[in-house]
């Protein structure tokens, strides 16, 4: 059975989306002004000091993990009654 959101709920949801995106924008702006120290400086690795490295890393890591999971699911997904069917 489908339930429709009331107009008030729809408005609330829209506000939540806008606020969420604004927060992301603010994070990007602030991060431009923050100097992140290199974690592996002694190895000559400074990839983590690039501007906006962590937002990109977070987005990329989650993206890759979801794709990996979905790929794995092709072979390993079963109905949740799989073991109960015996």
């Amino acid at each position: 059975m489908k339930y429709e959101m009331t107009p008030q709920e729809k408005r609330l949801a829209a506000i939540a989306w806008i606020v969420g995106l604004l927060v992301l924008g603010v994070i990007i702006l602030i991060d431009l002004g923050v100097h992140h120290h290199a974690h592996f400086e002694k190895d000559g690795l400074t990839f983590d000091t690039l501007p906006e490295f962590y937002p990109m890393f977070g987005f990329g890591a989650a993206f890759v993990l979801i794709i990996v999971a979905k790929t794995l699911a092709i072979a390993l997904k079963r109905k949740d009654t799989f073991y109960a069917d015996d």
Binding site: V23, H36, Y54, M56, F57, G58, F59, A62
Partner: peptide, 12 residues
Amino acid sequence: MLMLGMLLFAGL
């Protein structure tokens, strides 16, 4: 900022 950036954009 490291954690905020990483986590919130993972959420995105």
